[in-house]
Design a binder for these strands. Structure first.
Lengths: 204, 204
DNA sequence: ACCTGAACACCGTTCAAGT
DNA sequence: ACCTGAACACCGTTCAAGT
């Protein structure tokens, strides 16, 4: 039973990767595995459950760092792994924001972060909060990137958009520093460094 | 023309608030404003453009803090405003993650954050990066909340989910501190305080 | 300029039926 | 136990036509 389900989820993920989430219909997935749409139901239950299954399959691809590494390195590895996953599966990845971490692989990721934060010296009573803070940022960054939400700020763009320059003192003050293109790899690393400093400084 | 468009966007947002994003169909929106589905096209162009229009309407509801306030207070006000918006429009709010900030109201929000970060002493060359970091976290928190992604960690839940306790050293170590219910208002404030400390400490 | 109505090519899911 | 096929109540969008 479970083998057939995996085959169905793989087909759904392939379709999402190739043609976007909108192309993941019960009919299209069924055609790809050579079945009738109705034949999927015993395996995946519903369209919503199929999407949940894709999320779980995604998390299974995320490899977790060895406990012997430095906590900073572990945070970095998990964060970079998540971002890599987003680039590999840009259509399916944003689904991670939609559902709680209630699958085995999701719990394992959370546990890995718990360990890293404990080793960083975060007080036990703050670890679950800080874990949510870190994972929310990493997820948010990766989703923003693949969804095209990020784009460098620019005065020229702001003006094209029909906002008077007097309304935008911040953009004007920053004019020389708002660059037309951004190195997102470097930005992500700088963010993670700031985040690690913040983690170190949490005392309560 | 623009008056009719507003009426259409209001109807779409009302439908999303009342029955979820899936209920926002061209046919349903049209019915709500007393038109034929096809009559919407001259005003909104397409279904995707209608969703973009809803995002812009949402941002227009976000009130921006006065420049005379302390930068910490301004950050707090914008963040709480965004979270309140998410609660008022839980179905439509996650759309904010889908598209770049390329509307007048979006640029105004970014500018407000630029000003606050400059006043906080963030170096000019880092302001756009830190703005993306802060807005990504705030958006991510609010979306996680309305989508039900957040849920307190718990050993009991982890076990119910069929992961062996030996695999979860982090959960075991934190057992006494993983509470069954979380005060999300307090958590958001604690996160913002940590974020503000981080902002203060950015020097490059 | 603004709107309608029929049509096309799709959806997820039900149900009764087949083997 | 596993799968099929017809049907139901929907989609977004096109096109030609009305006023």
């Amino acid at each position: 039973v479970t083998d057939r389900k995996r085959q169905i989820l793989d087909a759904a993920l392939d379709l999402a990767d190739a043609h976007g989430l909108a192309a993941v219909s019960m009919r299209a997935v069924a055609a790809r595995v050579g079945m009738t749409p109705m034949a999927l139901y015993p395996y995946v239950g519903s369209k919503a459950a199929l999407l949940d299954g894709m999320v779980d399959r995604l998390l299974g691809e995320l490899s977790l760092p060895d406990r012997t590494l430095d906590w900073r390195e572990r945070l970095r590895l998990v964060a970079h792994g998540a971002r890599r996953l987003a680039r590999q599966h840009p259509a399916a990845f944003p689904l991670l924001f939609a559902r709680p971490a209630v699958t085995p692989d999701a719990v394992r990721v959370v546990d890995s972060l718990y360990q890293a934060l404990l080793d960083a010296g975060v007080p036990a009573r703050s670890v679950d909060r800080v874990e949510r803070m870190v994972s929310t940022f990493v997820l948010g960054f990766a989703v923003s990137e693949v969804n095209g939400r990020f784009s460098p700020g620019s005065v020229a763009r702001a003006e094209r958009i029909n906002v008077a320059p007097e309304e935008l003192p911040g953009h004007r003050a920053l004019q020389p520093w708002l660059e037309p293109s951004v190195d997102w790899d470097a930005e992500f690393d700088a963010d993670l460094a700031d985040l690690a400093r913040m983690v170190e400084s949490v005392v309560g």
